[in-house]
C-alpha cells in the first residue's frame, strides 16, 4: 500500500482505485479513520452532494487534520476537494473540514450547470503536481478559493473555476484526474511520487 483512499461509501471509488493502479499506485481503501495514522499518502475522493459527503467525512476530520499537520501528502478529488474547505452551500449551509480557506457555492446562473466536459487547465502558480493539459470536469458547485491557494484554473464562460489548489502537502483538484486520460494519469503519478515529512 502506498496510498490510502478514504471510503466515504459514495460513488466513483471504483474509478479512483483503478486509475491509481494504472498510475502505478497500490491503493488501499480505508474505512477506519485510525488507519490514516500510518498512511504515506491519502486521497479523499467523492461524487455526491456536500451534505452527504460531510456526514460521511466527519469521522475522518481529526485524522485528516493530523495527516496534514504531519505533512503527509493529501489529495481531495472533486467533492473530496470541496470538503477540504470551510463551508458548503449545497443542501443548506454546513461546515466543511476547514483545512483550506474559502467557501463552496453553486455555479452562478448564466452558465451551464452542471459544468460537464473537458477543458484545458491554466496554471496560475507553481505546484508540485504540475497541473497542465486536459481536464475532465463534472460538478455543479465550485470552491471560492483565494488566489494564494490556487495553482490552476479553468474558465467556464465568465466564471473562473479553481481547478487545482494546494497548501503545503494538501492538494485539491476540482476535476477528475482519474478520468482525464494521459494528463490526469500524469497528475496522479506526480502525487504518488510525493514524499511528506511523515512518510
Amino acid at each position: 500500500m502506498n496510498v490510502a483512499v478514504v471510503d466515504l461509501g459514495l460513488g466513483n471509488l471504483g474509478s479512483v482505485l483503478q486509475a491509481l493502479r494504472r498510475a502505478g499506485g497500490e491503493p488501499a481503501l480505508v474505512t477506519d479513520p485510525s488507519s490514516l495514522a500510518k498512511a504515506p499518502r491519502v486521497i479523499l475522493p467523492g461524487v455526491a452532494a456536500f451534505g452527504l459527503g460531510m456526514e460521511r467525512a466527519a469521522p475522518f476530520r481529526e485524522a485528516l487534520h493530523q495527516a496534514v499537520t504531519r505533512r503527509v501528502p493529501v489529495l481531495g478529488i472533486c467533492l473530496g476537494m470541496q470538503l477540504l474547505f470551510e463551508e458548503g452551500d449545497e443542501d443548506g449551509r454546513r461546515p466543511g473540514l476547514g483545512l483550506l480557506p474559502g467557501r463552496v457555492t453553486r455555479l452562478p446562473q448564466g452558465v451551464q450547470v452542471p459544468h460537464i466536459g473537458w477543458q484545458k487547465l491554466r496554471p496560475t502558480a507553481p505546484s508540485a503536481l504540475e497541473p497542465s493539459g486536459w481536464a475532465y470536469f463534472a460538478h455543479s458547485y465550485r470552491c471560492e478559493a483565494p488566489d494564494e491557494v490556487t495553482c490552476a484554473v479553468a474558465e467556464h464562460g465568465p466564471v473562473r473555476i479553481a481547478a487545482v489548489v494546494s497548501q503545503g502537502t494538501l492538494f485539491g483538484v476540482q476535476y477528475h484526474p482519474e478520468k482525464s486520460a494521459q494528463d490526469g494519469e500524469g497528475l496522479l503519478r506526480r502525487f504518488l511520487a510525493l514524499h511528506g515529512a511523515g512518510a
Binding site: 459514495l10 455526491a48 452542471p114
Partner: peptide
Amino acid sequence: ARLAGSQS
C-alpha cells in the same frame, strides 16, 4: 442525484 450529484 441526491446520492451521487446531478452530474452523475
